[in-house]
Design a binder for these strands. Structure first.
Lengths: 230, 230
DNA sequence: GTCTATAACGAGATAGAC
DNA sequence: GTCTATCTCGTTATAGAC
């Protein structure tokens, strides 16, 4: 086998894999993740369903690939936006990442629903999704760490007794150079950020919040202050 | 027709309606809202699908009934929990409502997914869901209003210019006796609360936060402080 | 080795005739 | 209201093309 022949095969495989995922994403938008069907994807591509198994060993593996792609797409949006303001003050960096996440979610509501919405019945995400899923969180951690190194930031109030041990464990696991007070608030703020985004994407702000961009920026800024950024 | 006969018929109708909703909730848990099917519900109840249309004119109407029930169940949990601490300090009242919402969501994850998770493809909730959906939010507003009347609480920092008009509109619409600064933060905190709850219910805290009750209480307390409660 | 197609399984949904 | 014929689905075994 020559290198070019192998290259052609590999390229074809990548193309077909991408076409399958594109069509699957189309169906995700139309019917939801629960109704994603290998057969329908194959039909739309003019393939036979059994041929898909060369690319994805099962329907769940296709779902997993879509989930990882979505997390990576979100993560890349956030990282790219952050890179453009990497030298700015930490509050701006934090808010920029939050706004990038919001912008991605509004632009890709169905993929957002796939990763942060209701679990798909009968599907359980494998551990291989963890690195992609962690990207936004790691970015937020890095911003807070940076701000502390540059001696900016404020000290957070002490933790309640019943949270201290757990917060120390979380700090040891994810950011051993940050105080447990900060890590506990960081994780809470991370989930609160996706509360704000989810409510907007899923329509809970309908007729409630109209001018959403300044509303979100204000909330994201408050989250930044909450983790000690100034 | 005698009154007793009419009463019996009305009672039977209520019973069958409840049985349909119970079975539909069972299917919600097993297959998700997207796959909820009137036929399957009818089959499980030993009825014929056409008979269901006497109780719910369409699948969407059954879904709407389940959504309103879920919001009401959550709202009642929160209101009951709050009533037990109605005379306590506002922070405890706020945290109690938050913990009641979390407890309800953990006890009814599929109904939680129905109201705060991914939208059901092809379904749009009618305005009749609004009163039930508002109950928790109205409770949180009432706690903040009460605290301000009793002269407790702190003043919030002024709003950014680009949010002032929208915040004044929101205040006029939902809580004209509260300052716009407070209303904007209240709505954000309400959505952040369901970010915390959703991440736990939907598994995003898996292997990340282990001892979740003190973690949640701490986060809810911080939200209370954020809206000015002390 | 790599891929696609045919055919089939068992399970479940569905539409229409009766 | 019931029954049946015909669809869907995920998945696998197998055979053959490149």
């Amino acid at each position: 086998m020559s290198n070019t022949a192998q290259g052609a095969r590999a390229r074809a495989r990548i193309e077909v894999t991408a076409a399958i995922k594109d069509e699957a994403r189309r169906q995700l938008a139309a019917e939801g993740a629960a109704k994603l069907s290998l057969r329908a994807v194959a039909r739309a591509l003019g393939m036979v369903s059994s041929a898909l198994y060369r690319y994805f060993p099962s329907r769940d593996d296709l779902l997993t690939a879509l989930i990882i792609d979505a997390y990576d797409s979100l993560g890349e949006s956030a990282e790219t936006a952050h890179a453009a303001v990497a030298d700015a003050d930490p509050v701006l960096r934090w808010v920029t990442v939050c706004e990038a996440a919001r912008g991605w979610a509004l632009a890709h509501p169905h993929e957002y629903a796939l990763i942060y919405g209701s679990p798909v019945p009968g599907y359980s995400a494998p551990d291989t999704t963890v690195p992609a899923a962690s990207r936004v969180g790691l970015l937020l951690i890095a911003i807070v760490r940076d701000a502390r190194l540059r001696a900016g930031g404020t000290e957070l109030p002490p933790l309640p007794d019943d949270l201290r041990a757990e917060a120390e464990r979380m700090a040891a696991d994810f950011a051993s150079d940050l105080p447990p007070e900060t890590v506990a608030v960081l994780i809470a703020s991370w989930s609160e950020l996706f509360g704000l985004i989810g409510f907007e994407v899923f329509g809970q702000f309908h007729r409630l919040v109209e001018d959403r961009e300044p509303f979100f920026r204000h909330a994201a800024t408050r989250l930044a202050h909450g983790v000690g950024l100034r």
